[in-house]
Design a binder for these strands. Sequence first.
DNA 1: CACCCCACCTGCGTGC
DNA 2: TGCACGCAGGTGGGGT
Length: 274
Amino acid sequence: MPELPEVEVIRRGLAPRVLGRRILTVVVGEKRLRQESSPEELQQWLPGRAILEIERRGKYLLFHLEGGVTLLLHLGMTGRLLLLPAASPTLPHVHLIFEIEGGLDLAFQDVRRFGQALVFPPGVEPAPLAQVGREPFSRQVTPAWLAGEARGRSRALKNFLMDGRLLAGIGNIYASEILFAARLHPATPAGHLSLADWARVLKETRRILNAAIAKGGTTVADFLNSRGETGLFQLELMVYGLGGEPCGKCGRAIARISQGGRSTFFCPRCQKGK
DNA sequence: CACCCCACCTGCGTGC
DNA sequence: TGCACGCAGGTGGGGT
């Protein structure tokens, strides 16, 4: 499900409704997420602490709690964070419920259980963050930095863009969309791009991520925001999921290939390189 | 290192 | 109707 825009939409939806409120209790479900702190750790560190800040790093959400405790959540492919009235009817595939002061339940629902829910005591840096690269909107990210990271790399541009250890938050949908907008073939070796190419990639990355956030994210199957609403950016997709359809710019059939075990969509006429 | 593939899960659509 | 197969917004471990 969620790439950077979807996670940011969730963060923005959640923050005004939970900041300053305490987590009262944690209800732990039967099945565990792929990475989940033990029930004992969750019970030890969360109840009674107010939520001071919700931060996004790449596709991770960090709940900074009173006393320096951090709750890290990752939604994997199908994760949702739904803010519901307390004691709402039980939904399927809800693996964690954080009861929030003021009559709210924050439910972590995740059909495939690829998500993560980890607590970190005061002073302990959340381990997954060590692998998270730079934020696409950071001033640390420039065309020259991208070109430097790509120098000598043979891997396909699309796989390079999706490497969260370099640039954080770009997943399978937005990688295809960004490369269509930048008019670059997804199979181009990353090291072959010019500085001007990287400038275009960066500009389109920021434009598309911002537009997707403004539209409430992309719902192709599962994504819902914290109020249970779908996004709207799927209406603006130019290539993702549109294999065989005519390109919106030139009319040629959009192609679908497999890269790194994931589907890539692109226009064979509009996107050059390779 | 850089790169590739597969595992981790469940559900849904398609084709026989 | 039933079943087998392929595919799905991500990450990370292991192999080459």
